[in-house]
Amino acid sequence: MKRLEGRVAVVTGGASGIGFASVERLAAEGARVVITDLNEATGKAAVQRMADAGHAEAVDLVCGDVADEAHVADAMDRAIDRWGRLDIAFLNAGVGGAFGSLLETAVEDWDQTFAYLTRSVFLGIKHAGKRMGEGGSIIATASIAGLGGGAGSHGYSAAKAAVISLTRTAAMELGPRRIRVNAIAPGVISTPLAHRGKESNLEALCARQPWPDTGQPADIAAALAFLASDDARFVTGETVTVDGGLRARSSDVLGDNSMLLAGRTGMNRGSTGLKSGFRNTDR
């Protein structure tokens, strides 16, 4: 029997990268999945890819903004309306966020970074937790950037650190109801958000990790499948690092933030379909 046979999941940011790989893995493990994504075009393409792979009846799609409470509630309700239950919530949606010097960062870019990366996780925990009843697994995508300095921009790192802290506190509240709350902290993973259409953008970072291969979305999906299953029944409040050993090296292994040194500031909106932007600074 498949590990997640009969389970129902919601995956935010499920149309590409880590999110889509996780949808594929959950379906392969027997789960039915509601995909949410802001980018309607990639969302529909993801559903078609799943249908082509023989999982047409195992997926559904709700498009919208994970920072909007009504959308998050609707996505969780869709799972219950379609399949009668909600067992797994993978709160994965994200953007690169605000980058550049703190002294030059626009307040609206900082706030939007936290909306996409942290408020979305709060809303996912809130609305999944309400609907899970007695038992379930909530997993958030954090980052090694949230575990120390130098692994990401200021806003991204701070927002992911908040996700890690929220994971712990939510696990304390929801544990008595047998709802487990954990996070996954990826390292350098080959996704559109990370390489921005050019795989060579990851070469310098990958060269610093002990493991010789570049991390793939499927590596994160494998960790998700474990945390979502009964194999992890006694695991909650944890952040599982999946980074090819990158953090096992010295704390400054990633060096200074290259975007900060590039003399630019702006907002990276990743694969949301919204336009990213930057401006040059005097640095």
Rank of each mutant, 00 (worst) to 15 (best):
L205G: 09
A170N: 08
H154C: 08
A207D: 15
S137R: 00
I139E: 07
L193D: 07
L123V: 10
Y156Q: 07
T141V: 13
G155V: 04
P210S: 06
G124Q: 08
F122E: 05
G100C: 05
A222F: 06
I189D: 04
I220C: 00
I179W: 10
G100H: 01
R208D: 04
S153E: 11
C206I: 14
S229C: 03
T167R: 09
L103P: 00
R119S: 04
S153L: 05
M132R: 05
F114Y: 14
L202P: 03
T169N: 05
E203R: 12
F122Q: 12
L174G: 01
T167W: 05
F226Q: 15
S190Y: 07
T214Q: 09
E199G: 03
A218Y: 12
G187F: 02
G146V: 02
Q209M: 14
V188N: 02
I189H: 00
T191H: 02
A170Q: 10
P186E: 06
E199M: 12
L202R: 00
D213G: 12
G100I: 02
Y116I: 14
A221F: 01
A140I: 02
T169G: 04
E134G: 04
A140C: 02
A225Q: 14
A225D: 10
G149C: 01
R178V: 06
I125L: 09
A222C: 09
L166N: 10
I189A: 01
A204F: 03
T113F: 11
L123Y: 05
A207P: 01
R131E: 13
S157C: 08
L193C: 00
M132S: 06
R177D: 08
G197N: 05
Q209S: 14
L224Q: 03
A228I: 03
K198W: 02
L205R: 14
A221D: 03
A223I: 08
A140N: 02
S153W: 06
K198S: 08
A225F: 10
A140F: 01
